[in-house]
Amino acid sequence: MANSASKARTADFQLVGNSDSAQRMAANTGNQFDFLGVLVGQRRQQSTDLVHSSKQWSIVEIFSAMGDLFSRPEREYQYVAIDIAIANVRRFDIDDMQHFCQWITVNAWRDTGDNWRQFFSKYLTFHREQKPMVFALFFKNENIWLRRIAILLQINEDFSLDTDMLSAAILYDRNTDDKQIQLAIGRALRTYSKYNPVWVRNFLRQHGLSMVAAKEARRYLLSYDFE
């Protein structure tokens, strides 16, 4: 995914962290990935100029730079790549959304999955009419990390949330034996219960969910008086 264009934009970009933070960050991901030890605030401070300058790049240059950053072994560079995508979200179209899906599965885990979800959800704030097309990129995909985005795609929405889409995404994966999927189901329902607790309560009554998902989904319902 990297080429000469990306190297021209990112060759001199380096993050600086510390080993103690790197060990803690790696432990938080089950020691699956290498880290430099750059905390969120530090990463944003160190990458401010790069992210800001990316707004002047062509779309091709953005893709190339992201490919270069994703090719680096340290996890923080992948976070910066997604930061670049989010900073330029208003410049992309639906064809670009499909292109971005290739990176979701690269060293996939909850951290980058949540960052990618934020990107696609933000895109939909500018293109509400494209929600069915964006949802279709993830729904029933063979990769669980893409399906997880289908479940969480609308998590920032309130009364604009499409309950048919949410139901379809949850029911497709309700028996999937993966903790991250089950937590995502519970999280999506828990968040929506802040706006429509009756719908969430009825959904839980009508559909059998795992203990993990149901427990997470009911967290806010306990405080509602449904009488």
Rank of each mutant, 00 (worst) to 15 (best):
S160C: 12
A213V: 07
S193D: 03
D114P: 03
D83L: 07
D111I: 01
A81L: 02
I151F: 09
M165G: 10
V51A: 00
D95C: 06
L152V: 06
A150T: 03
V38A: 12
R75V: 00
D162C: 14
G41K: 04
I86N: 12
I170D: 12
A26S: 15
L222P: 08
L183W: 08
G67T: 01
S58L: 00
Y192M: 06
D164E: 15
I144A: 09
W199N: 09
S210Y: 04
E227R: 12
D12F: 12
Q14L: 14
R205Y: 07
L39F: 04
I155W: 10
N3G: 07
L204R: 02
M211T: 07
Y220C: 14
Q46E: 05
M66C: 13
K140T: 13
E76D: 12
R44M: 05
A108L: 02
A169R: 01
S71C: 08
N18F: 06
R110H: 02
G17K: 08
P73A: 04
S210I: 01
A169D: 09
M25A: 04
L39I: 09
S21K: 08
R43Y: 09
F203M: 10
V60K: 02
I155N: 10
K131P: 01
K122N: 09
Q78C: 03
G17D: 12
R117D: 13
M1R: 03
V200P: 15
S6R: 05
N141L: 05
L36P: 04
L137Q: 10
R205I: 04
T191A: 15
M1F: 06
L161V: 14
T112L: 04
A213N: 11
R43W: 06
K140G: 14
W103V: 01
I94D: 11
R110P: 01
I185T: 11
D178E: 11
F226K: 07
Q182H: 03
R44K: 14
T112P: 08
A184L: 02
F92D: 14
R205C: 13
S21F: 13
S6F: 03
L161K: 10
Q45L: 12
I155P: 02
F135Q: 05
I84Y: 11
T10R: 08
K131G: 00
L204A: 08
Q130G: 09
A5R: 08
A26N: 01
Q182V: 00
I181W: 05
W109T: 00
I185D: 13
N115H: 08
D20H: 13
G17P: 11
R9Y: 11
N143V: 08
T163L: 15
V60A: 07
R147Y: 12
L189Q: 11
L15I: 01
I155Y: 14
Y79C: 14
S19E: 15
A5M: 07
S210N: 10
W199P: 12
K131N: 04
L15D: 04
N107A: 05
D225I: 04
Y77D: 03
F138V: 05
N202D: 15
Q56A: 07
